[in-house]
């Protein structure tokens, strides 16, 4: 069974487009990334799946149940971490988490203490007195407290310091090992690279591609760096070379094509040094955007 399935999900605000024909299939137990620049429609997609927004057309299913018609049942299985945390100012973190827990039959109140220690969150402080990062910690605890089968995370690491980010990723690993499906929305590619099996790339409200992260990284494309002993005249590049840049006697470019052709070409050159490496997700991503 699929954890999340959306079919041509669209949301328009009047004539203004939020998202258009978003179709996603996310397997149970998967860690699925959702990458795109700000304003691409990541949050709109999430908010529509959660029932906060009413879709203009299309549908979303969570574990086979319709996210609109059976929203209450569906949300029992979801833990949601919003990108911007807005909680009841007059409550303390403990009050908020207990209030949250009472909505779910599966909640384990003893976990509040445990997770607060893990994330170093003072439970007695009022929400209004919490810093941005501490509010985020409270929201993380809130998202996992009721042992959801699906975690939906919207820009989850914003506001967290690197130490807490690592603890958060460790927690996600543990949750995922227990079988929790994770939908991870972010514009920070290194996070997606670290956490996800597959990722969808969204741009201007439309899904550009759904890629296997590993395949994406391995996809033929190489970053090449050469240092020349002497700069050759009238150098001809093989087909598939892009973004070539000279810096004195150093040359860098991206290469998409059969590796044998590149090596044949290299053999004719007088090189002092040569490096061929896998590109980071960033450059692959930029590659998508330029198309």
């Amino acid at each position: 069974m699929l954890a999340i399935e959306t079919n041509n999900l669209s949301k328009f605000y009047g004539k203004h487009r939020g998202i258009e024909n978003v179709s996603l299939s996310i397997d149970k137990g998967e860690v699925f990334g959702f990458i795109g620049p700000n304003g691409a429609g990541k949050s709109t997609t999430i908010r529509t799946i959660l029932g906060l927004l009413i879709p203009s057309s299309g549908s979303a299913q969570i574990f086979g149940q319709d996210a609109q018609k059976e929203g209450a049942k569906v949300r029992e299985k979801i833990g949601y971490l919003p990108s911007e945390v807005n909680y009841y100012d007059e409550m303390s973190s403990r009050e908020l988490l207990e209030y949250h827990a009472r909505f779910y039959p599966k909640s384990d109140l003893s976990k509040i203490e445990e997770l607060a220690t893990y994330f170093e969150l003072d439970l007695e402080k009022k929400i209004t007195d919490l810093s941005f990062g501490n509010k985020k910690k409270c929201a993380i605890i809130q998202a996992v407290l009721h042992q959801p089968e699906l975690l939906i995370l919207d820009e989850p690491t914003s506001g967290l310091d690197p130490l807490m980010q690592n603890r958060f990723f460790d927690l996600l690993d543990q949750e995922n090992e227990k079988g929790t499906t994770i939908f991870f929305s972010s514009h920070i590619l290194s996070e997606i690279q670290r956490m996800c099996d597959r990722a969808a790339i969204i741009r201007n409200g439309k899904i550009e591609a759904v890629e296997d992260i590993q395949a994406l990284l391995e996809k033929q494309m190489k970053k090449a760096r050469f240092v020349f002993q002497s700069i050759p005249e009238n150098l001809q590049f093989p087909a598939g070379v892009q973004h070539e840049k000279w810096h004195q006697n150093k040359l860098t470019f991206d290469y998409v094509g059969p590796i044998a052709d590149l090596i044949k070409w290299m053999a004719k050159l007088e090189l002092a040094d040569a490096v061929l490496e896998e590109p980071d997700l960033e450059s692959i991503f930029m590659n998508y955007y330029e198309r």
Binding site: G71, R75, P82, N86, Y88
Partner: peptide, 17 residues
């Protein structure tokens, strides 16, 4: 107004409830 509707409406509650 306070933005807490996002918290409330992502709970397992129908709008009717």
């Amino acid at each position: 107004k306070d933005g807490t509707s996002e918290f409330l409406l992502t709970k397992p509650l129908s709008r009717k409830s």
